[in-house]
Amino acid sequence: MKAVRVLNNNVVLACDEKDRPVILTGRGIGFSSRQGKPVDPSLVERVFVPADGRDPSAGSGPDGDPARLAEAMALISEEVLQAVVTALEDVGIEGRESTRPTLAIAVADHVAGALDRAARGIVIEYPLRAEVQTLYATEYAQAQLLLQAINEYVTPRLEASEATPLALHLVNAGFVSGDLSFTYTMTGVIQQMLAVIKERYGLDVSHESMNVARFITHVRYLFVRIQQRRQLKGHESTIGKGIRQYYPEATHTAQQLATIVELRLGKQLSEDEVSYLALHVARMTMGGDDPAV
């Protein structure tokens, strides 16, 4: 790999053997690197390879530019950046080579702020803790492990409550937009949807139910499709119409849920998306957790 630009002693923008832009991190890697010259591989601790030359979780704006990402990474202190990227690898969230530099940047930036608050004795209570634990159980469990790993490398140790924002950053990494506010909005919309279903049918919408878990997963992927402008459509003559005819009551509820999405995001759902929402609503209202329902 050849150095393109040395950002600081620990971050280098380079090109790999396929001429792809990559971001390299490692203690002292920038000190011995020179523009246009090969980078000493023994100094490379982490390689970030944005897909197609861009970070897929950073969208199409300037934040997806590898040079901008490298600059942002260079602004984070060496100790915090190393703690985060090592912890991400320790718990199996990211490997030595990663296609998501914005995840490392976002987590490291949050950890830097959290360490500053901890040093000053400032404690923050995160209001979305219950929602995050319920809606994003997998990411919350990962975040708890990540927090434990980070605490092995930093001083002072971070409070257990920091697992909530870390989980949100892990959820956010799955979207085209790198804007965490979208994840906050999605969280609120899912809660609204579940509240409508609970009120309309008198159902227990706790996440322990398999059908509720399926619904939450479906809605999360729906949000991904909305962000990527890839809503389901084109199957109206068969599947979509069949679902709406077979589950008219669930379809009416799904149309209400679609209205919530449109009001909160300004995006109208396709007929197919409404149909598949109806299918998941029907599963919840029919009782039981039979996978064949």
Rank of each mutant, 00 (worst) to 15 (best):
M186N: 07
A137G: 04
H207V: 12
V196D: 08
N172Y: 02
D116Q: 04
P127F: 04
Q148C: 11
Q142L: 10
S206Y: 00
Y126P: 11
E162R: 09
L128K: 01
A213I: 06
G188I: 01
R200L: 05
E159G: 15
L146K: 02
A149I: 05
V205H: 06
L166M: 05
Q148S: 15
H169P: 01
L168M: 14
A114C: 13
L115T: 01
L147H: 07
D116A: 14
L168A: 08
R120T: 10
G202L: 02
I216D: 15
Y126S: 12
T155A: 03
L194N: 14
S177W: 06
L158P: 12
Y201S: 02
F182W: 09
G188E: 05
V132N: 11
G178Q: 09
Y126Q: 09
S181A: 07
I216P: 15
R200V: 02
A195H: 05
I216N: 10
A173S: 13
P165F: 01
R157L: 00
A112G: 14
A130V: 14
A118R: 14
I150R: 00
Q142V: 02
V154H: 00
E208S: 06
D116R: 14
Y153G: 03
L135N: 03
M210T: 10
A160V: 04
A163D: 12
Y136P: 01
G188M: 05
A114M: 10
I190R: 07
L166K: 03
F182T: 04
P165I: 03
V111K: 08
L168F: 00
H110M: 08
R129K: 11
N172M: 02
P156Y: 11
T134V: 09
N151W: 03
A114P: 08
Y140R: 01
G188P: 14
R157S: 09
L168D: 01
V189A: 03
A130N: 10
F215Y: 15
E125G: 11
E131A: 14
A141M: 11
S209G: 11
N151D: 14
Y126N: 08
G188L: 02
V196R: 07
V132F: 04
A143S: 04
L115K: 05
G202M: 01
E125N: 14
E139P: 00
E139G: 00
R200P: 02
E208G: 10
F175G: 01
D116W: 03
N151H: 06
F182E: 06
Y136Q: 00
A118Y: 12
V176S: 04
A163T: 08
Q144L: 09
T164K: 02
D204F: 00
F215M: 13
T183E: 04
R117D: 15
A173Q: 13
A167W: 04
L166P: 05
M193L: 07
A143L: 06
G121T: 10
R117Y: 13
V176I: 06
R120W: 07
A118K: 12
I124Q: 08
Y153E: 09
I150V: 10
L166T: 01
Q133W: 00
S177H: 03
T155R: 15
S206H: 06
I122L: 06
F175S: 00
L203D: 10
V111D: 11
T187Y: 03
A114E: 08
E162Y: 09
